[in-house]
């Protein structure tokens, strides 16, 4: 089976700084890949290159059979990659519901002329979006649905992370990129997050997930494919046990994290 996303020899330089150095990885349909590594290792840069925020210095990204290197973000999202951000970037002055509806941007079609001259069509589209968004909000852990008219900026930290995931799912992605979804969550909330991701995969077996994580409890829950990045280079890959056993990984990262966990 060919990979859903394939990253080949990706290098990203910012002036003299090499954020990613010849990184290759791939993920199959329906798989979960955990990307670990110390702060500043280049994990988020990887997401930014894949989603078209940065143009890579060299290398290729292919998704679902098409090359998406250098393609603009809106095209990448349209093709089926959705992401969350490490420091949650919600539309804070808009309601929870509106945040999710904006996530459906690539799945809706109303243009200026339709909005102006066929208001009925535009209204029906919005009504359908509201219904879908409410379903998405009801699905996850937490009580986002009850808070749907609140400004997103007033949500508690764990709810913000959940809302980001709901917003990403609203675009009906084939590949979901989660950038440290457990940041700011306590143990119970983290367990609920793992349960959420597991449930998503059961409901949609074709959904692939790439997870950037610091919390080893989350990584342990999805142990089949783990990649470790340090100083922009991939230093290990394999299942969680194998990566954890790797001396370079322990040296770079796990030694400290395991002691705390």
């Amino acid at each position: 089976m060919s990979a859903l996303l394939k990253v080949e020899n990706l290098t990203m330089r910012f002036g003299g700084l090499v954020a990613l150095n010849d990184v290759s990885l791939s993920i199959d349909k329906g798989a979960v890949l955990a990307v670990i590594g110390p702060n500043g290792a280049g994990k988020s840069t990887l997401f930014n290159v894949v989603t078209g925020v940065y143009r890579p210095t060299s290398g290729r990204v292919t998704f679902d059979g098409a090359e998406i290197t250098d393609r603009p973000s809106y095209e990448v999202v349209d093709r089926g990659i959705a992401r969350t951000f490490q420091s949650s970037r919600l539309f804070s002055d808009l309601s929870v519901l509106d945040n999710v509806i904006i996530g459906m941007h690539t799945r809706t079609r109303t243009g200026v002329l339709t909005a102006l001259f066929r208001p009925g069509a535009s209204r029906r589209e919005m009504a359908a979006c509201v219904e879908k968004a409410e379903t998405l909000l009801k699905l996850g852990s937490g009580d986002l649905f009850e808070q749907r008219y609140r400004p997103a900026g007033t949500l508690a930290q764990a709810d913000r992370r959940r809302l980001e995931i709901a917003r990403a799912l609203a675009s009906q992605p084939k590949l979901l990129l989660l950038d440290e979804p457990s940041v700011g969550m306590d143990d119970m909330e983290t367990d609920a997050l793992v349960a959420d991701i597991t449930r998503l995969r059961v409901q949609n077996p074709a959904l692939s997930v790439i997870l950037i994580e610091h919390d080893m409890r989350v990584v342990e829950a999805f142990p089949q494919h783990v990649t470790c990045i340090d100083y922009g280079s991939k230093i290990a890959e394999g299942d969680f046990a194998a990566v954890r056993a790797e001396p370079r990984v322990q040296e770079a990262y796990l030694g400290k994290a395991v002691a705390h966990a």
């Binding site: 990448v76 996530g103 941007h105």
Partner: peptide
């Protein structure tokens, strides 16, 4: 208006 980078990530041109 709220966040241009997040808007991009939602597929807004």
């Amino acid at each position: 208006r709220a966040d241009e980078i997040a808007a991009k990530a939602q597929g807004i041109n």
